[in-house]
Design a binder for these strands. Structure first.
Lengths: 333, 333
DNA sequence: AATTGATTTGACTAGCTATGCAGTGCCGAT
DNA sequence: ATCGGCACTGCATAGCTAGTCAAATCAATT
């Protein structure tokens, strides 16, 4: 009825001490070739593998990294999650995947993560309450907030230059001769969304344009679709729309073409943000920003590894990756 | 330097025994209100939460379920992963996310999962070698193979009626008056792919059509796109194409429209499989099969829970969920 | 007041690995 | 022959919780 062989079982079969077994599996430990051979032989017979569980108790390292995410419907996050997972596995870590309804905070899951003694947390949630941050600081669990700049001395963050990207989009629209501007955004409690809108608005204001049609939607295709329907039910509808992300932009394009009966880009320019795979599909050929996801992930990981090594947060690291405009068909005339 | 308070620390502060602390956190245990109060008070002061780690050692239950997945680029799997995660969290389990290059087997990761004492494994990999299955049976780790029927008495599987779905697509194509048929598929080592092709071919053969243009691609957009390019570089090109999944079908549609210059559905009918969100986007409006993902996940979970409860595999459960055809614009004339 | 039964409590131990420490045997050097 | 140094080995213990068991307390009954 016993499922797993223990190091003691192996030691008994190999005729050595339990310590010898333990040392066989620790690189660089002091074991003779002869002993190692006997141990490995016995281990093979018993299908033995050292258990992580007591090791965690002793070393206070679980090699677990929690990734907290609000939704995978957006391919951008699916991609990011995949890269995190692959990279973490390469360095001998395991990923504890945690789903928190987007719009909610980490609060409720922190005790659970703490009870598994995770080494670190990556949060891709838009919201991180000060209470959560304090809890994590108290437990000394390093945290990297992904895609959401955070103001807290314990939590690091890696995000991209949302405002800068939005400025460039505004410039591009102006250059292409657009006159009336629209923004279809995500929920207003998303910092990324707010930064994108702010940047867009700022540049347009500089150029003397104060009138912007803004629709608050979600970050989904349906949001973009409905957003356009709403926007075009009013007079003076825009001839250039910046969308909070690519899913929204794609929904907007479909609504413009199939519902409103306008042409993109001939009648209306559209741009998005993220550069998900769908953006380059031939039917859309969407102008957008490349969030350099691989680089963002790598930066986040290097912060994590430094924090784990230091056995603490490296504290207050704020990395902002520049976004790169990719002009495609939806803004070309 | 100590990160976490232990139950002993709490006991000392509360002036009770360690057992009392443990019992306070076990529902239904015999503790007086008075003691419980003292314990909770002390626990709050020390920010104490019981650690899962020693608990795992004692109870041989980790409440960890590993989900092994080959790629999240396909929104179908991203959706499935999300539902698994949400549902497992509801029942107090945690998800250990493991990425294995698609086309590879579980083999390499089993020791790692075993060392974390996972309660069960969900595998969404196309391949599960007999060796892996034996290893898992030996360690008595229940496994559910998702979307890949498996022949092994330890491993259960939940998949959908691929062949049945393919039959219906063939019928639909015939009904719509198609004459020349094409199939753009995934890699031939994918059982799901093989079943879909076999079902398609079987029905067409019954109707006296033996000639089918088959292109082997991957399961991605690019595969569908290139597949069409290749298929239409030969004479006698098809007027109805069944694709191994929706991503492939969408790639195929874009290639037909933008590269080959044909109309869908007027010149060529197209159907896919999965019913990912993208399939119902207005630009594609793709006829496809609804794999009832929520139900598949729920069936998989109920097998898992039964297995975990029985502390063994429930053995040789094969559930096949019927797929439902959704006819949309790409097969309507 | 004594007895019974139920409830609550604390001491103790299992579970498995990593590691500090002390010890063994062996080598070459003195 | 003795010694220091070296490579290796085993003993014993820490790490933290859940559960067993026996002891202790309490409430209720006679």
């Amino acid at each position: 009825m016993k499922k797993y062989a223990s190091s003691t079982d192996v030691a008994r079969l190999a005729g050595v001490s339990q310590s010898a077994v333990s040392r066989t599996y620790k690189p660089g430990a002091s074991v003779s070739e002869e002993t190692r051979r006997k141990v490995l032989e016995a281990a093979k017979k018993l299908h033995y593998r050292p258990s992580m569980i007591p090791r965690i108790m002793l070393t206070h390292r679980s090699n677990l990294v929690a990734i907290v995410i609000g939704g995978m419907y957006n391919p951008f996050y699916a991609t990011v999650l995949e890269r995190f997972t692959v990279k973490l596995q390469e360095t001998g870590h395991q990923v504890l995947l945690v789903h928190v309804e987007s719009g909610h905070s980490l609060d409720a899951v922190i005790p659970r993560l703490a009870s598994y003694r995770v080494d670190a947390i990556v949060s891709a949630l838009a919201i991180l309450s000060p209470e959560s941050a304090d809890d994590l600081a108290r437990l000394k669990i390093p945290v990297v907030s992904f895609n959401t700049p955070v103001k807290n001395e314990w939590v690091s963050s890696v995000s991209c230059d949302n405002a800068g990207g939005a400025l460039q989009i505004a410039d591009l629209f102006l250059e292409r001769g657009a006159r009336r501007f629209g923004y279809i955004g995500g929920p207003s409690d998303s910092p990324a969304n707010e930064e994108r809108l702010a940047g867009f608005r700022e540049r347009l204001t500089e150029r003397g344009i104060s009138e912007i049609a803004v629709v608050e939607a979600d970050f989904r295709y349906e949001g973009g679709f409905q957003g356009v329907v709403e926007m075009f039910s009013k007079p003076n509808s825009p001839d250039a729309i910046f969308c909070a992300n690519d899913l929204v932009a794609i929904g907007a394009i479909d609504a413009l073409r199939k519902k409103i009966g306008l042409r993109v880009p001939d009648d209306v320019l559209v741009a998005g943000f993220d550069d998900i795979p769908e953006a380059s599909w031939a039917a859309y050929d969407l102008t957008t920003f490349v969030q350099d996801a691989p680089r963002m992930v790598d930066e986040a990981l290097s912060i994590l590894h430094a924090s784990i090594a230091a056995n603490a947060s490296v504290g207050e690291v704020r990395i902002v990756i520049p976004a790169k405009l990719v002009e495609r068909g939806t803004t070309r005339r």
